[in-house]
Simulated assay, not measured.
Amino acid sequence: MANYTAADIKALREKTGAGMLDVKKALDEANGDQQKAMDIIRVKGLKGVTKREGRATAEGIVAARVENGVGYMVEVNSETDFVAKSEPFIAFANNVLEAAISANASTLEELKAATADGKTVEELTTEAGALLGEKVVVRRVARVEGENVAVYLHKTSKDLPAQVGVLLAVTGENTDEVAHDVAVHIAAMSPKYLNSDAIAAEDIEAEKRVAEETARGEGKPEQIIPKIVEGKLKAFYKENTLLDQDFAKDSSKSVEKVLSENGATATAFERFRVGA
């Protein structure tokens, strides 16, 4: 007869994020001892790290915080949403965020080399994968500095941790409310750039070429093609740049106008969505 209960299985699953069958096997082997079972799961997990290397990691969490006027954000991925919402995985992601803050990391390389609890983030990632029994990946990090930095985290499902995160830097006094509203807008509308100046010149030229070729292919008169290209470029900016987008809460105004009316100027932003 098994020396453990259904409650023991549930508790160990919550602690490790491991699957039902793996938990039951570990408890059987450990004769019901929770700590021994956790060790068994971890050892077996380490042995399986290489086998998991090619697996997809489309689930996960975005964690972010503002510390001393600087915003930090990380994305950490798992294979399944079951692991993504487990306590060990969420704790690991928060440890990664703490490491990013401590190391002032702005690149993935800096983050992986950062330390927490005497180990590098890269080492901790391997250990997390062993414990959870899935491939775990620290995908990216962002650092945003400015006069005022707002952070917004959004859950796409109430059962999962935050899947979308935004850091937004603005200047101006008493800007907390408008900064929050614009951060929510960024989460929903997915702008790629702050403004047209942030777009590489070659990307703008590519958009112009496509617009010209499309207009000629449609047989448009040569004399009106420049105006067509100008209109297409304006539409491109409106779709992809934050300041040119229609504000989500009031589409009669651009984001830039809303910020200006509130005495604020956006200087930088970062947006993460798990898996995107």
Rank of each mutant, 00 (worst) to 15 (best):
171 T>V: 05
172 G>R: 01
172 G>F: 03
173 E>G: 08
175 T>I: 02
176 D>I: 01
176 D>H: 03
177 E>Y: 15
179 A>I: 13
181 D>W: 06
184 V>R: 05
186 I>N: 02
187 A>E: 02
188 A>W: 13
190 S>Q: 09
191 P>Y: 03
191 P>R: 06
193 Y>D: 04
193 Y>T: 04
194 L>N: 01
197 D>L: 05
197 D>P: 04
197 D>M: 08
198 A>R: 05
200 A>I: 09
200 A>S: 11
204 I>N: 03
204 I>D: 02
205 E>Q: 15
209 R>K: 14
212 E>R: 15
212 E>I: 07
214 T>Y: 13
215 A>M: 12
215 A>Q: 08
220 K>E: 07
221 P>F: 06
221 P>V: 10
223 Q>G: 01
224 I>A: 09
226 P>I: 00
229 V>M: 15
230 E>H: 11
232 K>S: 15
233 L>C: 10
233 L>N: 09
234 K>Y: 02
236 F>W: 06
236 F>H: 11
237 Y>G: 02
240 N>E: 15
242 L>T: 00
244 D>C: 10
246 D>T: 14
246 D>I: 05
248 A>W: 14
249 K>Y: 10
250 D>E: 02
252 S>E: 11
254 S>F: 03
255 V>G: 02
255 V>T: 09
255 V>Q: 11
257 K>V: 07
269 F>A: 00
